[in-house]
Design a protein around this nucleic acid. Structure first.
Lengths: 262, 262
DNA sequence: AAGTGGTCTAGACCACCGA
DNA sequence: CGGTGGTCTAGACCACTTG
């Protein structure tokens, strides 16, 4: 059996009530099918909950094999745009369950991306015993030894973030021996211990006198406080590896992000 | 030649030579292949940048067809775990490019998820002309009419968020006619105009006297301010549809999120 | 030239659903 | 029962990279 190859578009004259299709050049057929289905939704011909053409119908309409139609619908399903029910059909997925995302970029990358100059000053690098609150955050008994670092990050000389961090010694035994003026603690940790999970929390807080001085803030200026906990894999399940408190001058900094929903 | 061996779908009890693999049971073969490759990485046998078995090798090792091996590797690639280069090979993907995400949940859902009771009070619902700053945010000339709403959201009676919002009349002509004590403005907008893109920015700010009173905040307490802009599709490209300023009492609220990389 | 991934086909068996 | 998706195969042609 021969098979075509190349030249597809105009071939099978079955364009059912369609005209807005993207001219198929040499784009893969499964992508053409995907685009077609997406087009039906975008054009309003299909609304959430509506049934989309079955694989069989797409086979007939596009002259592709069922595997190709299947791949198109399967990928759209994986992308969250369709839902499928075996034995019933394929349907336009309900719109996003909502929930926007705020992207948090590492301070160093963010500064460099803006064209700024990043510098860091190590204020503290020591071992300490977990107190009550800290121990609770680490899910460990109080008194457990932890590594602690305090680094002030500057952009073009102006303080932008105070990074307080506690690290479980087991996941980064050499943590205290690093030079954090060239690498950030975050970068080092990512290099030595792959993060399995992370938790973030953002709040507004007033700085104490020391913090206000370090960040060179005005008297009545609030701070943005970003708390972060990260987990690493361990034999007995994930365990807290690191806890960080990142303080930003509220008047000078905003966490930001832009995203495109499905 | 045709030599259709017994059934081979999701229920085949076909068990070829198997090693340390998870009990094959009736899991699809492409998933078994995926699990095998992931296992090599998890076990440390393969590190980022290393070459993983080619499709051909997987075909030989598992006795599957090339399409099945291809699907396994293709899906792992789509999931970001592998990278492929045609003509060269398939490789373990580099670790996370970094960049965490903070999930922002709609206030109403968040309250209900906690088991709280949500109530809303409409403080303002009017038409107004875009002033300079507002017009700039909407990318429109000053003086353009906008809809404006101000809604105070409470959890179990305690103020939790003041929502100031401006909406382009064209995207929601009936915006001012809604009852925002039962539906949030955000929910209404999502229903009438699918968001194509969104931008978020979080900062810390001190509330003015009115805001402090509305949110029932202490004297020296900062606010968390979340700014949001959303875009909708338009003939001449995406246009700003809505702008919101969400004020939270800093001492009583924290934006939070947890996510799993990999 | 040999190997790799990228794509495609024309069948196939299965489990499931609804009438 | 017929339709749906879920999976699988044993080939195939192509473009690409490498030795």
């Amino acid at each position: 059996m021969l098979r075509q190859r190349k030249g597809n578009s105009g071939g099978t004259g079955l364009s059912a009530a369609e005209g807005v299709e993207v001219g198929a050049a040499d784009t893969p057929r499964y992508q053409q099918v995907k685009a077609h289905v997406l087009g039906l939704v975008a054009a309003g011909a299909l609304k959430p909950g509506d049934r989309v053409p079955s694989e069989h119908e797409l086979v007939a309409a596009f002259g592709v094999s069922r595997m190709t139609a299947n791949r198109a619908l399967r990928e759209l399903t994986a992308e969250g745009k369709l839902t499928r029910v075996a034995g019933v059909g394929t349907f336009v997925a309900a719109p996003k369950p909502r929930g926007a995302m705020l992207e948090l970029r590492p301070i160093r990358e963010e500064i460099l991306a803006r064209g700024g100059r990043h510098s860091a000053e190590v204020l503290r690098l020591a071992r300490e015993e977990a107190s009550g609150e800290l121990a609770a955050a680490f899910e460990l008994p109080p008194g457990t030894p932890l590594f602690r670092s305090e680094v002030l990050h500057r952009e073009d000389g102006r303080p932008l973030q105070l990074e307080e961090r506690w690290v479980l010694p087991a996941v980064a035994p050499a943590y205290l021996a690093q030079d954090y003026t060239s690498t950030t603690p975050s970068d080092y940790l990512l290099a030595v211990a792959p993060v399995q999970e992370a938790e973030h929390q953002v709040e507004a807080a007033l700085p104490d006198a020391r913090l206000r001085r370090l960040l060179e803030m005005g008297a009545a200026e609030p701070c943005l406080l970003l708390r972060r906990r990260t987990w690493v894999a361990a034999p007995a399940g994930p365990r807290v590896a690191s806890l960080a408190r990142l303080w930003y001058p509220g008047g000078r900094y905003a966490l930001g992000g832009r995203f495109r929903p499905g």
